[in-house]
Design a protein around this nucleic acid. Structure first.
Lengths: 152, 152
DNA sequence: GACGTTATGTCAGAATACTGACATGAGTCA
DNA sequence: TGACTCATGTCAGTATTCTGACATAACGTC
């Protein structure tokens, strides 16, 4: 394997490895969330609302790394099923602050436990120091990537 | 921010950070690949074929982290447009070994340069030691996640 | 006040990826 | 040989996400 050095070399590419890790994490999360009838984006939305009540659709979209159009589709379903509430009229601007209902909070409970177990499993065998290093390194990557985004 | 310790705590969650980094990388890749009329999966497929000629549809799917059904749709388009070739009959089993055409190789050239620049940008400000650490940590995460996949 | 910029919510359509299902070929084992 | 398991390619339908576009509200500058 890896008999030429012409390309990006998938065996040693940190980008490829990052994608692989993210893919494995997503698969593991989907596996534990499926029995609860919940997708990863679905869970992310609820978790965001639990930690930061009153987030708008656009803010939730940014937090869950999807477009605001996609998040809007999800929010409409969650609202219809009684997991979240949004005021009919914006208190300021156009942003509609969203909040969990008791039903939404209850639904989130089991999901949070399941997801936490996945995260614990992911960090198994890593020391505190290594986890801190991982945190710093990922932050560095994110910052470097976002720096040269659309501007100079 | 982070006013309760009940949830996963997005501010300190390595899982969330991993998703954020992967999302940033994907966005950056899409940005540079779009002018070339190529998606990330599209590029991944071509790059895989360049480094490991003769990969089957299912193998390409695993390498690009999509289902074999999704990869098949892509492969049919790539074959129709003359970027890859597949034998009409499988030399052994059902697997059809896929290969890049000169046109496919040419198309990949510019994309590889663009993607490499993104990866270089991502690693900017990281020492060799840090990159090696990142590699080891990501590998550890992947292994831990895949260990308890479907079995015990 | 008038204007331009930015951010937001929303609608519509297209692209992409997924799940489910089926038939086929190879390998294993009795 | 026959039955079983597994991996593969493929078809069909569904679900999810995206891009493009529009109207509206807040902010800044003139």
């Amino acid at each position: 394997m890896s008999q030429n050095g012409a390309g990006v070399d998938l065996e040693t590419s940190l980008g490829y490895l990052l994608k692989e890790a993210s893919s494995a994490l997503r698969a593991a999360m989907e596996e534990v969330l499926r029995p609860l009838g919940m997708s990863v984006t679905h869970y992310s939305c609820l978790e965001l609302l639990a930690q930061r009540p009153g987030l708008s659709n656009s803010e939730l979209a940014r937090g869950a790394f999807v477009t605001r159009q996609s998040m809007n589709v999800l929010l409409q379903a969650l609202e219809r099923d009684g997991y979240v509430t949004r005021p009919a009229k914006a208190p300021v601007g156009k942003a509609l602050p969203t909040r969990l209902t008791p039903s939404g909070r209850r639904s989130l409970g089991a999901a949070t436990a399941a997801v936490r177990s996945v995260e614990v499993r992911m960090l198994a065998g890593m020391t505190e120091t290594e986890q801190a290093g991982a945190f710093r390194i990922l932050r560095s990557m994110i910052r470097s990537l976002n720096d040269g985004d659309g501007n100079a």
